[in-house]
Design a protein around this nucleic acid. Structure first.
Lengths: 187, 187, 187, 187
DNA sequence: AATGAATGAGAATTCATTCAT
DNA sequence: GATGAATGAATTCTCATTCAT
C-alpha cells in the first residue's frame, strides 16, 4: 500500500505546466542519454512524480510523438506559406533540424518501428508535395526532382549526420554532401 | 585418473572453437535482437557458459569489434587486388554489406561512440585511398571524386538504409538513391 | 455571480446519485475484475472523480460492505414473511446468490478477515434462526437440523462454487451436492 | 548498468539448497501473506537474490505448482498402497491437508485459473479412482459413492475451511460437517 | 461537495557481472 | 579454462491516497 507522501501537491492547476516540463525534460534527456533513457529520469528531470508522466504520456512513444509533433508544426507552418520560396525554406529548416537536433535523428531512428503505426511518415511527404511544384515552376529547383527524390535526399543527409562523430563534423560533412549533390538539386 | 568428460566441460582445447561459436552467435543475435541484446542470449546461442563469453570478450564492444573485423578482413582482401576494378568491387561489396547486413548498420550506430577510440574509422578510408586512383586512371570513376567524397556517399547510402522500414524498402531506396547519384559517381 | 455549471461539477445535489452510481459500479467492477480491482476503475465506471469515491466510501471494505448490505436487505425481507415457507425461500435465494454471484463469493473470501469486525457474520444466522423452526414445525425440513447445520451446509455449497472452474460447472456441481445432501436436509 | 555486488556468492553448489530455501520460504510467505504476496518477500525470506528466484521459478505459478507437487507426492504414496484401507488413509490425509494447511487452500483458490492448463486437476480424481473401489469391496465405504461424489465432498469441506474465521473454528466446523455427512459416506 | 491531477512507494522483471566449483 | 548459478541494482509500470481548485 503506497503512501501518498504529504508534500507539494500543487493540484490540477499544475497539469499544463507539468506537461510542458515533461516535454522539455524528455527532449533534454533523450538528447543526452538517447531515446532509450529511463522514463524515471525524465520524470525526475521534469520535477514530477512518475505517475504524472504516465498520466500525460502513457507510453514512451507518446512522449516521442509529442516531441516530433512540435517540429512538425513548425515545418507545416513553413509549408503553408503560398510563395515559391516555401519549399526552399522548408528544405533549409529540415536540414537544420537534421543537423542541429541530432537527438531528434536518433530518437526517430530508435522509435522508427513503433512509429510505423502512426501517420508521421506521411506528413513530411505531404509537405514536400505541397511546396515542391511551386518551386519548380519558378525555376528554383530542378524540374526532374520528384517528391520521392527529395525525401531520399533528406535520408541521405540523415545518414551523414547519423554517422558523424561530433556535431561539428556533422555540419561540415553535410555541407560537403550538399556540394556533391548540387547538380542533383538545382536546375 | 583421467576422467575428463564430466559434464560438458570440454576443457581448454575447446577455447578456439568457443571463440568462433561466440562470434557466430553474436552476429546472429545482434542481427535478430539488435546490438543491445542480452549477452546471456549470445552465450546461450553459442552453447557456452556466460563466463566463457567474458573470458574471450570482456566487453560488448570487444565482441562487436570482432564482428566488424571479419567484414574488414573481407574488404581488405578485395582492396588488395591490384587491378583497376578493385575499387568497383570494394564499393559494390560495401553497399551490399550496408544493405544486407542492416544489423551491421545498427550495431555500428549503437557502438559508434565507443568505437571512437579504435582505429576502425581509419581503415575504410585507407581502402578507398588504395583503390580509387587506379579506377580513376582507368576512367571507371569520375576523376573529380575524392576519397572523402566516396566515404560521404557511403554514409549517405547508410542513411537510406538506416531509415528504411523494411529490408525490401531499403534495397529499393538504395537503388533509387544510386540512380540519383549517378552523375556524381561516373565520369 | 452564479456561474454554476463549470465543467461537470453537478454540486451537492448529485451526492445520492453518485453514491448509487458508485455502488453499481463497484458491483460490476468487483464482478469483472475481482475484489482487488483498482478503486480508480470503480470511480471511472461510476463516472465520478476519485475524491467522490473516497468521500462516500473511505475504504474498499466500506464499499464491499454496502454491496453485501443490499443482498442482506433482500434476504431479510424474505425472512420477515411469517409463513412456514419463508425458510425454504430464504435457503433457495441464498443458494442462488452463492451460485449466480460468484463475484460475491470471491469478494466475501477476500474481505473475510476485514469483515471479522463487523456484524455481518451474525446476520445470516439470525435469519435462519428466525425461519427454521416454523419450517420444521410444518414438517418441511428435517427436525434434526440445527441452525448451525444450515449455515454449515451453506458453507459447503460455498466450497463447491468457490472451487468450480466455470459458472456452469458450479451450477451442476451444486445440484449434485444438494442431491448428495438430500437425506440430510429433508425429514 | 547493474553492479554485481561483491559479497556472498556461494557458487553453483548452493543451487539445490537455494531451491529448497525458496520452496520453504514460499510456503511460509504464501501462508502468512496469501498467494499474491510479493515475490520479493519470498526471495528475501529465503535469503537469496531476486534473480535466483526467477532462475528457479520463472513464474509465481511454477512456485505454487512445486508446493502443490510436494503434497501430491505424499498423497500418491498413500494411494499406491494396495490394501483396502488406502482410500481411508488418503481421505483422512486430504482432510488434514485441507484443514491444516489453509494456506494451501487459499493458494489453490487463487491459482485456480492459472492451474487450468496443468494436469493438477486430474491427479486427485485419479488417486480416488484408484483406491475407492477396493474400499467399497471391503465394505468400508458406501457402495453408492462415486469418485465424483468423493471429490465433491472434499470441495464441500474446502468450503467450510475457506469460510472459517480461525484455524480452530475450521477444525470444529469440519468435524461437524463430517458428522452431518456421516450417512453419505458410510455404507 | 465534486473534480481529477499529483504523489511516490511498491512490485515484477531483466541483465551485467562475479565467482565457487 | 569452462560452467552456470548467484547477485542485486535498475527499470517499468501500477495504484492508493491526498489535495488544490
Amino acid at each position: 500500500m503506497p503512501n501518498a507522501t504529504r508534500g507539494s501537491n500543487r493540484g490540477p492547476a499544475a497539469a499544463p505546466e507539468n506537461r510542458r516540463a515533461l516535454l522539455d525534460a524528455a527532449r533534454r534527456v533523450f538528447a543526452e542519454r538517447g531515446y532509450r533513457a529511463p522514463l524515471s529520469a525524465i520524470a525526475q528531470e521534469a520535477g514530477v512524480g512518475q505517475g504524472v508522466l504516465y498520466r500525460h504520456f502513457p507510453t514512451r512513444l507518446d512522449l516521442a510523438l509529442e516531441v516530433f509533433e512540435q517540429h512538425f508544426v513548425e515545418l507545416e507552418a513553413l509549408a503553408a506559406e503560398p510563395d515559391a520560396g516555401a519549399f526552399g525554406r522548408l528544405w533549409t529548416r529540415l536540414l537544420e533540424l537534421t543537423v542541429e537536433e541530432s537527438a531528434f535523428v536518433e530518437m526517430f531512428l530508435a522509435a522508427r518501428h513503433d512509429l510505423a503505426e502512426t501517420d508521421l511518415a506521411d506528413r513530411l511527404p505531404a509537405l514536400v508535395a505541397a511546396t515542391l511544384p511551386r518551386a519548380q515552376s519558378a525555376g528554383l529547383v530542378s524540374a526532374h526532382l520528384t517528391v520521392a527524390d527529395v525525401l531520399l535526399l533528406q535520408r541521405m543527409v540523415y545518414g551523414v549526420v547519423a554517422t558523424a562523430v561530433t556535431d561539428d563534423e556533422a555540419r561540415d560533412a553535410v555541407a560537403q554532401a550538399l556540394a556533391l549533390l548540387d547538380g542533383v538539386l538545382e536546375g
